[in-house]
């Protein structure tokens, strides 16, 4: 077979069919153009990363991670942003993973093909394309008043009377405007469509023979989904979820809309080191209701700061490097999850 192929090639080269030769030439040119395009975009990316890294060098030091915002670029740090982004992403994941994966399982495995389900499916991809600022406006007008009105319940003067049997005093919480919880609810809206679509695709990739076999062996639909389909789809779902979470870390617009802090020297719940979490766990209760800032918001603010010697540019660049490192770490985690989950699947 291979010999005959080579022979054909030779005959193409030597042949008199000019049309064929021209086509071969075209395909070769096309290949080179594609290569150039690919490598040039890689090159541009490399130049960008290199220049960001280069200009960050003067501020990239350990104290950049442990300092707060400062008007003095030499002292300015990203601590509040790191903690803010951490809690924001944790809560966002806590909201969007169960809802997103649950919706995907319902849409793929359970829902019958009615017009409503079709409408939802079509609109999911539309929702994924909606600019994130729109969700920010939604968060501002829907979640913010909702959360602020909760303050009247959690003001420390109320008790719940449970069926006349006993009374439970409701916690006194300080619910701040622009809290982590409002941010996380808004951010969940931004990434939910992505989580759902990615999970749907992962579920769709599972061959239906697996489901049929499981059902044929007497498993219920619940058992089939929980023990066969979801474990098999886990690597795909995890990839989608982690991509979505990476997006949540990088988004500034929706949380700026809900009134996040920019000049911030405070971490949610006053937790500035992981040790404080262990020493005083009650602080964790305050975290969701506390004010915060996030890494992209701080970077945006620094990049606008006027400074004749461009020292704030270095601060912004250092912030970008930290943000990229966090993203790389998350993606590494995704790869590990994928490898682990994939190993356990044996059909």
């Amino acid at each position: 077979m291979s010999i005959s192929l080579q022979e054909t090639r030779v005959s193409f080269r030597q042949g008199t069919d000019s049309l064929l030769r021209r086509r071969l030439l075209h395909s070769r040119v096309f290949r080179v153009v594609c290569l150039l395009l690919t490598y040039s975009s890689l090159g541009i990316l490399g130049i960008l990363m290199g220049s960001v890294f280069w200009s960050s060098l003067s501020r990239l030091a350990p104290d950049f991670l442990s300092n707060h915002y400062s008007m003095n670029p030499v002292r300015c740090g990203i601590l509040a942003g790191i903690w803010g982004s951490f809690w924001l992403v944790m809560l966002t994941a806590a909201f969007s993973i169960p809802i997103g994966v649950g919706s995907a399982v319902y849409l793929e495995e359970m829902a019958s093909d009615t017009w409503l389900v079709r409408l939802i499916r079509i609109n999911l991809s539309n929702l994924a394309g909606v600019p994130s600022i729109v969700y920010g406006i939604l968060g501002l007008s829907a979640f913010r008043p909702l959360m602020l009105s909760l303050q009247t319940v959690f003001d420390g003067t109320r008790v719940v009377n449970v069926m006349g049997l006993f009374r439970v005093r409701i916690l006194h919480l300080e619910i701040f405007d622009g809290s982590v919880l409002i941010g996380a609810m808004t951010m969940s809206l931004v990434i939910l469509p992505i989580v759902i679509i990615a999970s749907q695709e992962a579920l769709r990739a599972i061959p239906s023979s697996i489901r049929v076999a499981s059902l044929a062996l007497g498993a219920t639909r619940w058992q089939t989904i929980w023990r066969q389909v979801i474990p098999a789809a886990l690597p795909g779902i995890a990839t989608g979820v982690i991509l979505a979470v990476s997006r949540a870390i990088g988004e500034a617009a929706p949380i700026m809309m809900i009134g996040v802090l920019t000049v911030a020297s405070m971490c949610p719940g006053g937790i500035e080191t992981p040790l404080q979490m262990l020493q005083d766990p009650t602080r964790l209760i305050a975290v969701p209701f506390d004010q915060f800032t996030a890494m992209p918001v701080e970077i945006y603010d620094w990049s606008k700061q006027p400074d004749p010697q461009d020292r704030f540019t270095a601060v912004a660049a250092a912030g970008i490097v930290v943000l990229l490192l966090v993203l790389l770490l998350i993606n590494a985690a995704a790869m590990i999850v994928r490898a682990r989950a994939g190993r356990n699947t044996q059909w």
Partner: peptide, 13 residues
């Protein structure tokens, strides 16, 4: 049920 006093806020201190 309550002593009338407002409980201190739970949180960061």
């Amino acid at each position: 049920g309550g002593g009338g006093a407002v409980a201190p806020a739970v949180g960061s201190g």
